[in-house]
Design a protein around this nucleic acid. Structure first.
Lengths: 141, 141
DNA sequence: CCTAAAAAGACATAGTGTATCTTTTTAGGA
DNA sequence: TCCTAAAAAGATACACTATGTCTTTTTAGG
């Protein structure tokens, strides 16, 4: 339960790579894909989603590529994950038979709400800068 | 992301139903399934898992059925969910390419650990008694 | 125009979630 | 002992989603 998909994994790898580059640096998709070991065609789809949401900026044609859409410290892990996986939502109604609409009846609903809040809160506390910095620490060696 | 499956949903419904019955009361699978609106054959599989883990006790043959394996206050939602969904585990390694083994490199690993802890902690704080009691509050009306 | 590169959409495959069916085992009652 | 009730176990079927590829189109620079 609760597993991040490959897509989410790849998404994080890809955008953290960008976050580790100098600001405004435009990177080729093929280079990113090779560096983070993700199928280029798959990463393309992911970055298209990012692009629509403004998390990255894309440039077509010769000299094109991708750069981060905002500063690394302003993008949270939560945004990245929800951009590709959709809103984090552990709850489909669970207890009384078939009536999540009548949330009066659904006594487990508030519990899933708490789970959701906790998860989102952890992910919201981490920025791309945090992750990119930690990366550098190790790649120096 | 992070969605409980039908199986998990059904599992909770089914065992909460048992928790709402008098202790030691043996219920027919077919009755439980009808009451909580779950396909009986599917619920059978779920209860077989519960039975192996001691969450419920089963009795075969005439007069057989299921009862709770322990007291409702001693069974947490976490146990129920993990019994059927497996251990809650949001992390497959994510950042540097393909090396979750070398966890030195994986700076996002601790974050998934925190997510996991938070989720488990919420679910561990809820018992079947809590859920069954809340059920009764509404079914009185 | 020619080439580089991303965008968009269709397609293919594998895996998992969801569910059913049949056969076997166990137990109680006539 | 036999018949019936009920769960256990295993095989099977189907749909959906995750994963990934391919082709065509659009955009932009030289």
């Amino acid at each position: 339960m609760m597993e991040l998909t490959r897509k989410g994994e790849y998404a994080i790898r890809g955008i953290v790579y960008l976050a580790g580059k100098p600001i405004e640096k435009v990177c080729l998709l093929s280079d990113i894909a090779a560096a983070v070991d993700v199928p280029p065609t798959f990463l393309a789809k992911i970055f298209q989603q990012f692009s629509k949401m403004g998390l990255v900026k894309s440039f077509r044609g010769t000299g094109g590529g991708f750069m981060l859409g905002r500063t690394p410290e302003s993008i949270t892990l939560l945004e990245v994950v929800e951009a590709v996986e959709g809103h984090i939502n552990p709850n489909r109604c669970v207890v009384n038979p078939g009536n999540c609409d009548r949330s009066d009846y659904c006594n487990i609903h508030p519990i899933w709400m708490r789970v959701q809040e906790q998860v989102r809160s952890v992910l919201e506390g981490v920025t791309l800068k945090d992750l990119a910095d930690a990366d550098k620490t190790y790649s120096n060696t």
